[in-house]
Each structure stands twice: as C-alpha cells, then as structure tokens.
C-alpha cells in the first residue's frame, strides 16, 4: 500500500477525522466535557438555595434579565447535547452490529456496571432533563406552584423549588435522575482522559478513583436540595402557604 502524503488540516480531512472511530469518540468526549461544565455551573447556582430566598431569587432574576446570555447558553447546550446524543447513539448502534451472534455464555472480567450501562444511564438522564424542564422551566408538572412572585415582584423561584420538593414522589424522581447522572459521570470522567490519550501509569489509577468519586459527589450535592426540603432544613418563606 502506498504511503499517502500528510494532509494539512482542511475541512475534508477534519470531516474524515470526526467520522472515524477515534474522531467520533473525541467528539463525544468534547461535548461531554461541555455538558459536565454545565452540570457544575448549574450545581453552583442551585446550591445558593441554602443561602435563602433573597439570594436564590436574585440569582434566578439575574439570569432571566440577560436574555442574550440565557438563550445563547440554552441553544449552545442544545446543540452540544444533540451532538453528544447523536454521535453516541450512532456509535452504540455500530457496536451492536459488530457482534451479530452473541455469546451463549456471557461473562465479564473487569468492566464496571457504570461502563456497561452508559447508553441507558445517558437516555435516563435525557428523560430526567425533559421532566426537570417541564417541572421548573415550563411549569407543566404542578402549575399551581409555578409563576408566583416574591415581595420584590421577582419570580419566586425559591418557593417554587421548596413547594416542588415537598412531594416525596417528585423528590424520588430527582434522586433517581441523579443516581443515573452519578453512574454516567463515574465512567465518563476517566473515559475523557483515555479518549484524549492522557493515560499515565502513575496518574490513571488516581484519575479513575477521582472520576468515580466526583460523579457520586456531584449527584449527592444535587440530591441535598430535595433532601433538605424534605428534612425541613430548607423551608417556605414566612407568610407563604402551599
């Protein structure tokens, strides 16, 4: 076979790279990183609920008062999510097709349950995100708790969240969604390093453990909000009735 000359970057060679197995994996990792950034940012915003109604509503109001930033982020995240999901599903379908006859005797040596269920945990997170948007962004889950205003006339996001999480069934849905996120992240974080070719024998065991811990810590931090509401730590503002 003739050696081909090294191609300079062109749109054609970039396209070829992104369609290749390794390019597709890199694309999933890159979009996953962007989504991970959102997960961290969203958590930082949400945890302000522990600072009380004033801080939380001021934060929510600040976001809503910047439509360019808000919609830019939303559309950007939607595009990133579409690529992450689209490429992952294409890879998963190809992986299924690569073994048309399954083993009669199935066995696994060291693959983790998180790694075996990446597609399913990912789809579960998608379903959760849709529910979450319907709940707190659109207000379709419990319309009576949606659209209230606080004494300063701002949308009362704080009360909405506290009222929402007072239902144990809803809190449970959030806990399940966050468990799926924890599973997904626990495999995803260390995977990003491997996919980008960063695997050093001294660092990788630490990266694997840290990735696993980070996934579950982030999910636990999110779950702390409904848990605090149910435990009566985060309560309704004075004078507000359910």
């Amino acid at each position: 076979m003739e050696a081909r000359p090294i191609e300079r970057t062109s749109s054609a060679s970039l396209c070829r790279l992104l369609c290749s197995s390794i390019g597709s994996k890199a694309l999933v990792a890159l979009t996953g990183l962007a989504l991970f950034g959102f997960v961290l940012g969203h958590l930082a915003g949400n945890l302000q609920i522990f600072a009380g109604q004033e801080t939380f509503n001021a934060y929510a109001h600040w976001i809503k008062s910047k439509p360019a930033l808000l919609w830019g982020t939303r559309l950007g995240l939607l595009a990133v999510l579409a690529v992450h999901l689209g490429v992952s599903v294409r890879l998963a379908r190809r992986n299924r097709a690569a073994r048309p006859v399954p083993y009669a005797f199935q066995n696994t040596v060291q693959a983790t349950s998180a790694s075996l269920t990446m597609v399913w945990s990912g789809l579960a997170i998608l379903a959760f995100v849709i529910y979450h948007l319907l709940h707190f962004t659109v207000g379709a889950v419990s319309p009576a708790e949606f659209g209230r205003t606080d004494p300063l006339g701002r949308p009362d996001a704080y009360t909405m969240v506290v009222l929402g999480f007072r239902h144990p069934a809803i809190a449970l849905i959030y806990a399940i969604g966050m468990f799926c996120l924890a599973m997904h992240l626990s495999h995803a974080i260390q995977s990003v390093f491997q996919t980008f070719g960063l695997n050093h024998p001294r660092c990788m065991p630490l990266v694997r453990r840290a990735g696993f811990a980070a996934g579950f810590l982030i999910a636990a931090a999110y779950v702390s909000i409904p848990a605090a509401v149910l435990a009566g730590i985060v309560t309704l503002p004075p004078g507000v009735s359910p």
């Binding site: 090294i6 191609e7 970039l14 790279l17 390794i22 994996k25 491997q194 980008f196 070719g197 024998p201």
Partner: peptide
C-alpha cells in the same frame, strides 16, 4: 498489553487528523 497503548493511538490519530 495495556490499554495505555490505546491512549497512544488516540493521541497520534487525533494529532495526525488535526494536522
């Protein structure tokens, strides 16, 4: 054989593909 070799392949392929 270690999966570290896969990291080497990923790195080389991504570098080469990006020129």
């Amino acid at each position: 054989i270690s999966v570290r070799t896969i990291a080497v392949m990923n790195r080389d392929t991504l570098r080469a593909g990006l020129g």
